[in-house]
C-alpha cells in the first residue's frame, strides 16, 4: 500500500512538472492549452489517488475528488479554446491547416 502510494505521487509530480515546462516552451495559445491541460490533469489525478493509498481510510473520498477533476478540467479548457478562437487570437505561423475557421460563421 505504502509503495503504491509513493509511486503514484512520484508519477503525479513528474507529469505536473512536464506540464509546466510545456506552458513555457510552446509557441502558441492553443498548443499551450492542450499540453498543460492533459499533463496537469493526469498529475493532479495521480497525486490525489496516491495520497488515498497512503491513508487507506481516505481512499473513497480521494477517488471521488479525482473523478470530479477528471470530468471538469477538459470541459473548461475546451470552452477556453473556443472562446479565444472567437476573439481572434492568432495561430502560430508554423500552423498549416485551421479546420475550425470555416465553422465559426455558423452555430453548431
Amino acid at each position: 500500500m505504502f509503495i503504491i502510494g509513493i509511486i503514484l505521487i512520484t508519477i503525479g509530480v513528474i507529469f505536473s512538472t512536464l506540464g509546466a515546462l510545456g506552458l513555457v516552451r510552446m509557441p502558441d495559445l492553443y498548443n499551450r492549452l492542450q499540453t498543460s491541460t492533459k499533463a496537469t490533469t493526469l498529475g493532479a489525478f495521480s497525486t490525489i489517488i496516491g495520497v488515498g493509498f497512503l491513508n487507506p481510510a481516505w481512499l473513497i473520498k480521494t477517488i471521488v475528488i479525482a473523478t470530479f477533476i477528471l470530468l471538469t478540467a477538459p470541459i473548461s479548457s475546451h470552452n477556453l479554446a473556443r472562446a479565444s478562437h472567437k476573439w481572434g487570437i492568432p495561430l502560430s505561423d508554423k500552423t498549416s491547416v485551421d479546420k475550425y475557421d470555416s465553422k465559426t460563421g455558423k452555430e453548431e
Partner: peptide, 11 residues
C-alpha cells in the same frame, strides 16, 4: 449569449 457547444451542454 453565444450558444454553448454540445460538450458544455452535456457536461
Amino acid at each position: 449569449l453565444r450558444m454553448p457547444s454540445v460538450i458544455v451542454r452535456t457536461g
